[in-house]
Write a protein that binds this DNA or RNA. Structure first.
Lengths: 170, 170
DNA sequence: CTTGGAATGTCAACAAGGCTGACGTATCTT
DNA sequence: AAGATACGTCAGCCTTGTTGACATTCCAAG
């Protein structure tokens, strides 16, 4: 566009000092600690860890998802996931049902008990998120989301946007 | 204040659906993965992990900081920190000097080599942060910071704001 | 029908990085 | 002199990540 206008759009001219960037980096570090603190507390009482939380969260989000699907979203090895999944199934929090169309696949869903734990975990996390959102205000929230989305790897943004699939035909 | 005004400030009336909050939660999850990905890659080549990165970062930020200080900021046990710190000192990345005023204390600083590693790590992380900031724009950045700050635990916000101290008299 | 490959599960071994508990030493502080 | 503080260390445990090897089951192509 016009050349002489001093960077108001923020797109072209945006001076970012190392100090500003460091502050952002530390904000991520400290905020993430707060972000995980509440669920971590709940989980450690029951002998579970953050890995269990992640599995439960994404199974809740996409009921009937397959193991492979979960693997991609979580970005861990199947051995790691399997260990976590096994205890969740043994403890009756997650149900694993053989696929109908493809019987090699296992479709994962939360049981009643599993859904109850999920609720208590995400309630805690949502409370904190809600508090942060309310404190910062709606415009800040929009900015928050924009920056985080720009910070993700391409591949992760795909899962971030997409994950709503595999609805039917188990 | 006035009662009839529909929530424009975002402070009083702010409807937040579970769906909106979930999206925020997942944004944190996926973004944090991206946030740590680059340093993790660099570190794993050298036999270090994320714990080393954190130590190096905060020693760089507060040169001459004490072990106890670092403990509080990082929120780990001294045994955990010591393991990391020992290897960093052995490998000549961190220097530990006895306190002048209080000889029980050890003051930690980065050596030349340590500072070099710190630079390569924070360069990578800053590049990603800069990219995210530029993509999202300055207003988004302000919002991003506001939300993150509201998400921290009180105690952590203290360190987030404060850490600039212990300058003198080692 | 047979066979190749995909999806899943399992066993074993290992490492990083958290944790607790206990103990020792040096050094302040009272 | 006694107690508190700062630090280091030994030992042991847990979660959660990794690799590698291998079995099973099943779909689909030939």
């Amino acid at each position: 566009m016009a050349q002489g206008t001093p960077g108001q759009t923020g797109q072209s001219l945006l001076f970012l000092t190392d100090e500003q960037l460091r502050k952002g980096i530390e904000a991520m570090f400290f905020a993430y600690r707060g972000f995980t603190a509440d669920p971590d507390r709940i989980l450690s009482d029951q002998g579970y860890g953050r890995a269990h939380h992640r599995a439960i969260h994404f199974i809740h989000r996409s009921p009937g998802t397959t193991v492979n699907n979960l693997l991609s979203v979580l970005g861990v090895t199947k051995q790691s996931l399997n260990r976590v999944l096994r205890t969740l199934i043994e403890d009756g929090l997650v149900a694993s049902t053989v696929g109908k169309r493809d019987k090699r696949e296992r479709h994962l869903t939360l049981t009643e008990t599993g859904a109850a734990l999920e609720r208590s975990l995400s309630d805690a996390q949502r409370d904190r998120m809600r508090h942060a959102y309310r404190t910062a205000g709606p415009e800040a929230v929009a900015g928050f989301r924009q920056v985080l989305e720009a910070m993700m790897d391409e591949e992760m943004r795909f899962y971030y946007d997409a994950l709503k699939d595999q609805s039917d035909e188990r």
